[in-house]
Structure formats: structure tokens, C-alpha cells
Amino acid sequence: MEDLGRDYLILVFLASLGVIQVAVVHAGLTKLLFLKRTPLAYALGLTLIVAGVTWFFWDGPRHIPDTAGGLDGNDQGWRFAVSSLAAVFFTVLTTSALNHRDGNTPSTIPDGLESLRDHTYIESLPTGLRSLWEERPPWMRR
């Protein structure tokens, strides 16, 4: 059970990293890329997906009933959520370090993922948090 659960977490983490790379190449969110050249980033994404799946199923299809150590739907659900969120945060933090530019951050940063075309996650985050603070509801202002 522990091995299968751990292996499942690793499968989802690797494959999520790969899917995010492929998706952000498609979306043009260049500041979320590990590699600046998009064909290479695309290839890295596909490699991570294939590597995760191949590694998980290397020893066979893992037909284990959830009554004998397999993962039931709920178990898979929370493990997928935790591992894919870890992949998201690994991506935004690592690419912020890799794609960091020296110099002043422009004052206008659009909301949401759109900003990650031109700014890294860490460059953008203070703007979003500032907006949240300025727009806080009246009961929080006292």
C-alpha cells in the first residue's frame, strides 16, 4: 500500500510537470517554461509524461483490489490533488528562479496566468496580493 501510494504520487508529479510544460507551450506562457526554446520545452514535457507512466507500469498493470492494498477512488483523488498541486508549485517557483530578470518590475501586471507571458510568478505575486488587500471587504478593514 505504502509503495503503491508513493509510486502513484511520483507518477502524478512527473506527469503533471510534463502536462504543464506542454500546456504552457501551447498557451504561450513563456515564463513558466523550464527551457526557453519551445520545441525543447515541448519535448521535455512529453518525456516527463512518458517517463512517469513507464516507470509506474514497468513491473506490470498493478491490479490490486482496494481491499488488499490498492488505492480506492477517494485515495487516488486526494493523492492526485496533492501531487499535481506540488507539481504546479514546483513549476512556478523553479521557473521564477530560472527566468528571473534583473531590473525593475513594470507597474502594470495583468491578472491571472496571462501575466506569466512576460513576468515570472514571483514577480507577479506581490501585485495580486496587493490587489486582494486593497479590495478586502469592509469587515476586514476595521
Binding site: 502536462v19 500546456a23 498557451a27 506562457l29 498493470p61
Partner: peptide, 21 residues
């Protein structure tokens, strides 16, 4: 398998979350 197709389908959801042009 209990793991292949659900993971692939869930990864599709993750992909569309980030993937719009």
C-alpha cells in the same frame, strides 16, 4: 488498470486549466 485511464483523464483537466491561448 485502476490507475492509467483516470490519471490520463485527470491530467487532461490539468492541461486545459493552463492551456488556453
Amino acid at each position: 488498470s485502476d490507475y492509467f485511464t483516470p490519471v490520463v483523464l485527470s491530467l487532461l483537466l490539468l492541461g486545459v486549466w493552463f492551456g488556453g491561448k
